[in-house]
Design a protein around this nucleic acid. Sequence first.
DNA 1: ACCCATTTCGCGCTTCCA
DNA 2: TGGAAGCGCGAAATGGGT
Lengths: 258, 258
Amino acid sequence: PHPRPPQPVYENVVPPARRRGRPKSKAPENEQKIEIENGQSEVGKGEISQGHHKESTTGPTKGIKRARKPHGSIEGDAANNCRYDSSLGLLTKKFINLLKGAEDGTLDLNKAVEILEVQKRRIYDITNVLEGVDLIEKGLKNTIRWKGFDMLLPKEVELQTSALKEELDSSHDKESRLDEEIREAQEKLLALKLNKDKKKWLYLSKEDICKIPHLQVRKFLASCLFLLPVITKGISTIAPLIAGIHSYCNTCSSRNLC
Amino acid sequence: PHPRPPQPVYENVVPPARRRGRPKSKAPENEQKIEIENGQSEVGKGEISQGHHKESTTGPTKGIKRARKPHGSIEGDAANNCRYDSSLGLLTKKFINLLKGAEDGTLDLNKAVEILEVQKRRIYDITNVLEGVDLIEKGLKNTIRWKGFDMLLPKEVELQTSALKEELDSSHDKESRLDEEIREAQEKLLALKLNKDKKKWLYLSKEDICKIPHLQVRKFLASCLFLLPVITKGISTIAPLIAGIHSYCNTCSSRNLC
DNA sequence: ACCCATTTCGCGCTTCCA
DNA sequence: TGGAAGCGCGAAATGGGT
């Protein structure tokens, strides 16, 4: 299925039994260098305009991505600039995002490959590192699971934590506000009580009563001594009333009714 | 559906004189050297003999060929190297460890290269990903700094977070307890008020008063009509008192004192 | 223009699974 | 046992100095 572009056709094979690279190793005995000079041998490969079918997971996926970043790049404005955003760092972010998207924290790597439009190989680079840091866990076949709970982006934890702290604070002062209210309510209750107690003194004295002329009335009022605190209805203070009674008593007294 | 080219049998192919991967380039001009190491390249943990010359940084470092991963491998338990530990996942762990070691969280990548005995290239794989996840931050030249605080261990964050949540909870129900207290206090206040209102009806009627024999007393009591709600002192209900007054009135009445 | 740290990219081997 | 998954590895491209 996958056309695999022009495939250059190697014309050089290196004698087996040996690897290449590796200049500095410490075991120099027996190493040979073969220098190969190449002339032009152009790489076929022109442009790979393949409209990437989703096929092959591992194989070469897209060919290109960013347009060449020709030096000048007249337009050079928007954030499309080369190299920078093209890889791992950014890819990792995208990957993480994908991962956050999928609830149950499981992600299918092939899906990721499709969505992110990258070679599977790159995904492995990411998953390997993330696994090394225990943020991820390899699931069966082609999938990984997000471990390491929420704590992912420090930013997020920070946000979450500070949100929690804020709520705590608000709860705390809501609490103290309530404390205040309670205090006030109890104060009112006390004041009410005191008020009642004060009125206790607004009564007729024994002498006052004695000034009342008729015996029965005196007796009656005496029994009314129990009626101590008096509450008025419509009249804000009882003082005038008491005064009235005193006045009455005096009248009786002056008329010798006692 | 991955075609994956028929990979000829050749066991060692070297894209000769031409870059193999990287098809894109257009400038194949210069020559390249290919050093071939032959022999067995032993598994043993090559020494990093890079005693001098900075060369090492980028260049190929170790060459480790993994030992065969023999099927059975009786002991097959402990550190059976093979491919497994040779890479990224493990390397990442080691790297993180190094990072945790260095206080001030800064690590020199070249140091890491030496210590971990790996190619710089591998370190980049790690730093790129970690940076993508915001656990790391690139410092100037060859260094990175550990960001993302302690939160690395999910355990810790979890603990901190749950502690916070617990406090929040306790605050919340402390609050609701206070709410309850307030409610009760207000209830009491209301009850007190209602109580007062009820007592409003415990008064002597106009007729009651008219039954009182003597004019002055009648006048006096009439003026006392204002004293409507009556509060008792020591006596829980005023009913008996009212009854007493009625009784008194009746007595007067029966004696024709009216 | 050259140096070099960094990063891109993908070949080909290893390992897994049906 | 064959194909797919997984990934070591390093050449080469890139871009920032200077």
